[in-house]
Structures are given as structure tokens and as C-alpha cells.
Design a protein around this nucleic acid. Structure first.
Length: 753
RNA sequence: GCGGAUGUGGCGAAAUGGUAGACGCGCAAGGUUUAGGACCUUGUGGCCGUAAGGCUUUGGGGGUUCGAGUCCCUUCAUCCGCACCA
């Protein structure tokens, strides 16, 4: 009897697969390319999280299944190693992020080897590798040249503890997402990408994508298209989705950042101007962007504009409940219709007038989007320097392409200075340079770019990691993109996926690629939790995959992760559950390694095999891994009761299990074949064999189960015969005064009485 | 407030509108073993019954249907996003 020792088996096969290049794909010669992409992880120093393993295992199982169906599956992996997370950790342990990245990289790749995925280790991408970020910088320059990158002074969130600017999405309830410190506002000149120019296209294209529906909805809501009218109240433009309420507009409210405030100050008396200034200053100095919803602060400007519908003069107020970022930064307030306006009107004793809901002003039809331009600048060290040079004569100039990459200086003092400027600003040898246009002395941009830019194009680079002269090899992109299957967490359903789509659209417009949607299919996996609770360090319930791999082996961990719930809904990891899968694999190993072979099989056995192949195949196609495993267990339970098993049954069972438990199945398969099971072809089933001789027909009375009867399959069309059998059976006591009989041939006979 | 999801045994969960609870965990009884937390067999939603069997059961309440966990309406609860978006 062979004992199942995953520790020996797994190492042996991992080494052999790598040595023999079992999963290597010739990217240029592949006949049936299938790009199986998973979201690359950001490498934390703590190592691979079991959530990563969950995501990658599901994706790998799908990839292995697809490979066995005859496709050339390309399954690359890399590290999203730049960015605030890595830098913060470096700050915490007071080590250079560059050195930490190397340590994390080794650790991550070591762990990623252990889980038994079919990664192509020759084509890894690390975003902090100059060979990679050279092209990230190149992309920035392309966007700049196309007029899609611009500078704008705008109030930003500043975390006084991390000493850095935060994106809106990094601010949770007014506090820094990392450290919980209340965020302040600061004004900074920064680079933005004009993603809003693409808002409509990003919205329109969604319909044609084979993506998880909830992700499409999330993107749609994020883009947030709303149609309305632009109405002029004298010089002030107002956007509204309810133009028919304009006759109820009794005042106008400007955002405190509205440019027209300067004009108003000139026209009102000095006392009023001072009041306005005081209010605007007060709002600016507010610690947090988030305010109480109840309190409606504001100031009357002393200025009036004409309501174009009623022709009445209405007062102009300034209040911070109106956002400069949305619409025109000014609203017509209709207190009778809008709750916020009503609260404000009550608080400040402003007239509330009725609206007929009938009169609509001639306005200009407008579309507004919730989507805002993409803030690229980060006042940080650990990112790709933005490749721009500011010349006092020529203005902002892109670094010449031959001078790329702009290397991130390897310095000891890389920590944020608390000035709001990037650490690079204090490195004179970096800052001082010459203008690429006039050759005069000039200064470099010292901010680095957002990590989301790194991850917006990494799937292009995977195909062409050996290429030095261009970001990718054109023929490879033609062959391998758009990505056939992308699997990742729903938490990235908005930003990462939207940015990747945007960047790809820009490439299309530049004529670099001939498609504009990067991911043909996107599948969102669920969240893995531990015994009913979200995993977190503070709870101390984080699962470290290494321990489980050491104890049970990767095959058990993989199979268990997939068994504990539907892949798109996540699962609950509980320690006693993994034992069950370990036992299952042990039993399979034992049964199939000491099996007594025979070739003649009963029809019953054949049917069971073909039925299992059919059901498992269907589950695999739909990524229903938990039920696929359950069906294999059913077949195992059947086989274990047989006195002997055919070779075909053994091989078929191993193949169906191979994507889940690649090492163990390879070990057993190797006694039958020299070739890898993972390069063998997925079993097929014969529909003819699935036909049962005897049909089981459920007999119901008023829809209630009363009996089940066995009928020869060739006779199920004969309703009279079936009825006759049913009347003789257990149901007979319930059948009287029949009003109607429903018969679904071969399935259900229902007497309605 | 808006958007998304989820409510089924002691637990993780199955179920093209057609026998609810597959599969696994746990538990119980028995076997095996020097012993075991290893392995094997059987049982296992609840109630009644020695049994055959019956009744009941998918968060609550309505509805459609011969038939509803599944479809429709309504309501409650939990989780995850986003929120003064005009």
C-alpha cells in the first residue's frame, strides 16, 4: 500500500514540472491561445495571504481545465510592489522600501511556488523593476502628448500622520484608510488624466462585456451619468436634473470654491465681502472633508440673481453642502422639493415657494458624470517618478524617450518630509536637470505616479517581458489580447478595472492596439472568511497558507478552498473542514494506487463514469468548483463499493481531479503514462450511455409527493400505462375525484383532486 | 439615503419551477486496533410512531401555479460598497 505523503510528492513534481517546462507556452507559435489572468498581488512583508491563494487557486483550476481542453494557456504572475502599502510598511519597520521589496519578492515567489499553480516563471513582472516602470513612464508621456494629462490645483486630502496626499478612495469617513488619522485638506498642483473624456465610452462598452453583472453595475454607478439642463441665473450656470422645479427655486447656492465668488466680492459692500471671506476660510480650514449631514452652514452673499422662470430676484448663498467637483459647483435650491435645500432654507429662514412642476426653462441639455479625472500625482518616494521636466522658458516638457527610465534615486533619506512635497524634492542631483527642448536649466517633477497606473497595463507587459525597445511586441498583443479570462476580487471592480479600460482605450486611439476593451471576460470571486468573521491581524485569525501546506499539502489546501462554498460567493474557512478533504484525498490515493484492475465493466459503472464526466465538466465550465468536487466524491463513494475498477475509470477519475490536486493525480497517473496528466485531454462523455433503462417517476397528489414508481424507459411516453401503475401504488389512497392529471413524461405524474 | 449581495439542519452548503437538505464537517451506535485524535460500516432536519408510515420544514406575510427554496409583491435581518451628486 502506498502512503499518501504530499510533502514528498508535491516537491518532486513541482521540480520536475519546472525542469521540463511542462506549463511553458511558446507565445509566438501557440495555436489556441488562452490568456488566463489573475490579479497580481501587492507583496506585503507578511507574505502571501490565504485570500490570494483562494483567488489564484480558482483561477489556476480554470486554467488547468482549459489547458486539458486543448488550449495553450498562458498564466503569468507578478508583483504590484510599488505604492503606499509597501512604503508604509517600510516606514513602520524603518527599512528601505527597495530592500524590503527584494525580501518580499523572494518570499512571495517562494510561497507562490508552493501552491502548485501553472505560472510561467520566465515572464514575471514587478512594477518596481526599472525595465517595467520605464514603460509606465512612457505611457504617462503618451497621455501627456495626447493632451490627456494636465496639471490642476485642487484641494486634496492630506494625512498628517502618513504625511502624504490621499485619494478620495483612501479616505474612510474622513479618516486615513491606513492609520485612521483625521484627514486635512491642502491645495496642491498635481497631474490628472482626463478619464472623464472617456466617460461615455466607458459606459457604453460595458454592455458588450462578458463580466460579472454586479461589477458592471458598480462601474455604471461609479461613472454615474445623469441627464439634465444647464440653466443660467444671470452669470451663474446651474446644473439640474429637475428643471421643471425651477419656479420653486428661491435661492442659489455656490460651493465655497466657486470662482464667481471673487466677482461677487467686488460687487457687494466691504462688510459682506469680509463675511464671505470668513466663511470660505472657515470651510477651507475644516479638518475633514466630511461634515455632519444635519448641520447646514452657509453665508448670504448680499448678492441677487434673476430666476429665469419666475423673473424674481433670488438671493445667492455660499454653503459647503454644494460640491465644486460635481455639476457646475452651483445649484438652484428648491426647498419645497429637495430635503437638503429645505433644511438649509429653514435654518437660514429663506422663503419656501411652491412649484407647479410644469414650467421648464429653455435650457441647454447637458449630461453630467459622477466620474472625476484621475489624480496621478503622489507626493511619495516609492513609485515611478513622473517623467516631466519644468522649464522656466518652455514650460512642462516630457522627458525624451531615449532618456527613460527616469530612475528612482537610490537614497537613504526617502521618508516623507511633512511639507507635502515628495521626498525626491530634497535630492538636488535629481531635481536639477536640463530642458529637453531648449537645453537650459530646468527642474524635474518630483512626484511619483499612482500605483493604479502600474497595474493598468501590466497584462500587456506579461506577453513581452524580454522586449527592451518597446512596451510590448505587437504580434504578441495581437495573438494574446484581449485577455480571455480575468479573475479577481470584487473590491477592484471599480478603480483598477476602470483605469485599465481607460488606458487600453487610449492605446486604441493612438493606434497601438486594435481593440479597446482589455478583458473579454471578468469573473469576480467572493471573499474568504474565517469561522464567520473577516480575517484581520487585530483579530488574530489570519490564515497563513504555509502552515496548512506543511501539514496537509497544497493539493488539500487547494481542494478545500474550492470546496467550502461557491467560488463567486466566497467561503468560510474552518479548520475541521480541511480534515475532511485531506481524508478524501487520502482515500482516493489509497483506492487508486492499490486498485484491482479489470476491463469488463457493468453498464451501471459506465453510466456512473459518464454521468460524472458530464456533471463535472459542466461545473468546471461555470466555475462551480464546490459542486464539481462533491460529484467526484459521489463517484468515489460509488467506486469504493466496487470489487474492481477499470483502467479507464482510474484515468478518468484522475483527470477530473487533476486541476484541483495536480500533484497527487500526477503521481498516480505516472504509473500509467510517461506524459504529464496536465497535458492530457479532458475526458469526454457519451450521451448515449447516459440514458437510463428504468425511469423513476414521482407520483404526486395535489403536488405532494406520494410515491415513486419505476417504469421501463421505452414506455414512459405511454401515459395510460404510467397512470395505471401509479393507481396501483401507494398513492392510490389519495386518488379520488380526479379533476386533472399533469404528466411530465419520465419525471412527474400529478393527480389534482 | 442610494447601490450590490445573502438569509435553507448543530455547522460549511446542494437543488434546469417537479421526491428540499446532494457532498462534507460534527454527532451517535457498531466494528477494527495494544491504544488512538487513524481506518471501516450504519444512522443523522424537527415532531408523532416499535415499525410501516404520517405530519411539518428553506427569515416573516401575501400572491401566481397542478406544483414554489426557486417566479411576483411586501416586510424583517445581516454583510459589502458609495454617500450633502443637485
Amino acid at each position: 500500500m502506498k502512503k499518501y505523503t504530499p510533502q514528498d510528492i508535491e516537491k518532486k513534481w513541482q521540480d520536475r514540472w519546472e525542469k521540463e517546462g511542462t506549463y511553458k507556452v511558446n507565445l509566438d507559435a501557440a495555436k489556441k491561445p488562452f490568456y488566463n489572468l489573475m490579479m497580481f498581488p501587492y507583496p506585503s512583508a507578511e507574505g502571501l495571504h490565504v485570500g490570494n491563494v483562494y483567488a489564484f487557486t480558482g483561477a489556476d483550476i480554470y486554467g488547468r481545465f482549459t489547458r486539458m481542453k486543448g488550449f495553450d494557456v498562458f498564466e503569468p504572475i507578478g508583483l504590484d510592489g510599488f505604492g503606499i502599502h509597501s512604503e508604509n510598511y517600510a516606514l513602520k519597520v524603518n527599512k528601505n522600501p527597495r530592500k524590503l521589496a527584494k525580501i518580499s519578492e523572494e518570499n512571495f515567489y517562494r510561497q507562490l511556488h508552493l501552491i502548485g499553480n501553472t505560472f510561467d516563471w520566465d515572464r514575471t513582472v514587478e512594477t518596481y523593476d526599472p525595465d517595467y516602470y520605464k514603460w509606465t513612464q512612457w505611457i504617462f508621456i503618451q497621455l501627456f502628448k495626447k493632451g490627456l494629462a494636465y496639471r490642476k490645483k485642487s484641494p486634496v486630502n492630506f494625512c498628517p500622520k502618513d504625511l502624504t496626499v490621499l485619494a478620495d478612495e483612501q479616505v474612510i469617513n474622513g479618516a486615513c484608510e491606513r492609520c485612521g488619522t483625521i484627514v486635512e485638506k491642502r491645495d496642491l498642483e498635481q497631474w490628472f488624466f482626463r478619464i472623464t473624456d472617456y466617460a461615455q465610452r466607458l459606459l457604453d462598452n460595458l454592455e458588450g462585456l462578458n463580466w460579472s453583472e454586479k461589477v458592471k453595475i458598480a462601474q455604471k454607478n461609479w461613472i454615474g451619468r445623469s441627464e439634465g439642463l444647464m440653466i443660467d441665473f444671470d452669470d451663474i450656470k446651474v446644473f439640474t436634473t429637475r428643471p421643471e422645479t425651477a419656479d420653486g427655486a428661491t435661492f442659489l447656492v455656490l460651493s465655497p470654491e466657486h470662482p464667481y465668488i471673487e466677482e461677487i466680492k467686488k460687487r457687494v459692500d466691504a462688510k459682506k465681502a469680509q463675511e464671505i471671506d470668513d466663511y470660505v476660510t472657515k470651510v477651507k480650514n475644516q479638518k475633514s472633508k466630511v461634515k455632519s449631514n444635519k448641520e447646514k452652514s452657509g453665508v448670504f452673499t448680499g448678492f441677487y440673481v434673476k430666476n429665469p422662470v419666475t423673473n424674481k430676484n433670488i438671493p445667492v448663498w455660499i454653503a459647503d453642502y454644494v460640491l465644486m467637483e460635481y455639476g457646475t459647483g452651483a445649484i438652484m435650491a428648491v426647498p419645497v422639493e429637495d430635503e437638503r435645500d429645505r433644511e438649509f432654507a429653514k435654518a437660514h429662514k429663506i422663503e419656501i415657494a411652491p412649484t407647479s412642476l410644469k414650467v421648464s426653462p429653455k435650457g441647454q441639455k447637458t449630461v453630467n458624470y459622477h466620474l472625476r479625472d484621475w489624480l496621478i500625482s503622489r507626493q511619495r518616494y516609492w513609485g515611478p517618478p513622473i517623467p516631466m521636466i519644468n522649464c522656466s522658458k518652455c514650460g512642462w516638457q516630457p522627458v525624451l524617450e531615449k532618456d527613460l527610465p527616469v530612475l528612482l534615486p537610490d537614497v537613504s533619506d526617502w521618508k516623507p518630509k511633512g511639507t507635502g512635497k515628495s521626498p525626491l524634492a530634497s535630492i538636488e542631483s535629481f531635481v536639477n536637470t536640463t530642458c529637453p527642448k531648449c537645453g537650459g536649466s530646468a527642474k524635474r517633477e518630483t512626484d511619483v505616479s499612482d500605483t493604479f497606473l502600474d497595474s493598468a497595463w501590466y497584462f500587456f507587459r506579461y506577453t513581452s517581458t524580454e522586449e527592451k525597445k518597446s512596451p510590448w511586441i505587437e504580434s504578441r498583443i495581437k495573438k494574446w489580447l484581449p485577455v480571455h479570462m480575468y479573475i479577481g476580487g470584487a473590491e477592484h471592480s471599480v478603480l483598477h478595472l476602470l483605469y485599465s479600460r481607460f488606458v487600453t482605450m487610449v492605446f486604441k486611439d493612438m493606434g497601438l492596439v486594435d481593440f479597446e476593451e482589455p478583458f473579454a471576460r471578468f469573473y469576480a470571486h467572493g471573499l474568504l472568511i474565517k469561522e464567520g468573521a473577516k480575517m484581520s491581524k487585530s483579530k488574530g485569525n489570519v490564515i497563513v497558507p504555509d502552515e496548512y501546506i506543511k501539514k496537509y499539502g497544497a493539493d488539500t489546501l487547494r481542494t478545500y478552498l474550492m470546496f467550502l462554498g461557491p467560488y463567486n460567493q466566497g467561503g468560510d474557512f474552518y479548520d475541521s473542514g480541511i480534515e475532511g478533504i485531506f481524508k478524501f484525498l487520502n482515500r482516493v490515493y489509497k483506492l487508486l494506487s492499490e486498485v484491482k484492475l479489470e476491463e469488463q465493466k457493468s453498464k451501471n459503472s459506465l453510466q456512473m463514469m459518464h454521468k460524472t464526466v458530464k456533471r463535472v465538466t459542466e461545473d468546471m465550465e461555470n466555475l462551480r468548483f464546490n459542486t464539481a468536487i462533491a460529484k467526484l466524491m459521489e463517484w468515489y463513494n460509488f467506486l469504493a463499493k466496487q470489487t474492481s475498477i477499470s483502467k479507464e475509470e482510474v484515468l478518468t477519475f484522475l483527470k477530473l481531479l487533476a486541476p484541483f490536486a495536480p500533484h497527487m493525480t500526477e503521481e498516480l497517473y505516472s504509473s500509467y503514462s510517461k506524459d504529464s496528466i496536465h497535458l492530457s485531454s479532458w475526458p469526454k462523455f457519451e450521451a448515449e450511455l447516459l440514458k437510463e433503462d428504468i425511469a423513476t417517476i414521482v407520483v404526486q397528489v395535489n403536488g405532494k409527493f406520494r410515491d415513486s414508481i419505476a417504469v421501463d424507459s421505452s414506455k414512459i411516453a405511454d401515459q395510460k400505462l404510467v397512470e395505471g401503475l401509479a393507481r396501483k401504488g401507494r398513492a392510490r389512497n389519495y386518488i379520488k375525484d380526479i379533476k386533472k392529471i399533469i404528466y411530465v413524461p419520465g419525471k412527474i405524474l400529478n393527480f389534482v383532486v
